[in-house]
Amino acid sequence: MRTLDLRPHHLVLWAAFIALMLLMPLMVGNGTLRTMIFACYLAMFAISWDILSGRTGYLSFGHPFLIGIGAYTTGILTRRYGIPVEASIPIAVLVTMAGGLIILLPALRIKGSYFALVTLAVMELMLQLVPVIRPDLTGGTRGISRLPALTRGAENGYYLAAGLMLAVALFAWLLMRTRLGTALWAIGMNEESVRGSGLSTTRLKSFAFLVSAGIAGLAGAFYAHYLGSITPRSFFDINILFQIIVAVLIGGAGTIIGPIIGAFFMVFLLEWLRPYMPGTERFFVYGSIALVLYMYQPKGIMAIVDTIVSKMKGSRA
């Protein structure tokens, strides 16, 4: 596998990570498992965001829009048209990719800050549009409820979510180790030089966007079935965006394991805070930690771990 430059320690680490995730139900109770299910979905959203924004530096403030399309597509197909989930989820992924492309692709041609603004405006547009357009399909502000469940019980739900997350993470990790991953990263450092190296940056960004949208749609669709009901506020909301971005930042942008660590850290911290702060004010604690960490080390926990590891190696040598 010269393409990917795989080393033995990669395989060992991946095997250990997969084993840890799959053995989890033997170690923790159902309550914790339910928290972990949410963490797995958030991790997938975060990986999706990071493939586009963490690498290329084009900040997507509209990721909830993509996740929401995935969720609404499968919701409408299963509940309004009676299409089985085996068909509705793949369709949801395709619709997310197509919808994202039509609406956001033109925006990739404009400069970074403007892209961020357009994506934010698209999310706000959906928040206002979904409740009023075709309420017979979208269910208006009340959304769609009683989506068919894919699994029963916390344990099965966990295996589904963790399995999906591992697959997504492995896929993204492999993809980012190819030359394409290097090129995407290079765009984030200096887009003009990538163009000056003879590469079509628009095509590269579009591809990153498609992959990102595909993962967002997939995770969004499965998440909708896990939740069982969807509303505009629970998807097209700036708080969702905040959770995704902060998970990436805390863990470390530009890595695969970083967003996963960030998502688990975030979800468990929020869970522990729940008894003291039941509502969104929990984000105060969370946001403050994220902001201080970001100001101290913009590359997140992963970079801090790296520094410690290399220091320890250095002192041994």
Partner: peptide
Amino acid sequence: ILAIIMQS
């Protein structure tokens, strides 16, 4: 992030 902190 700051905006969300202030919101919270």
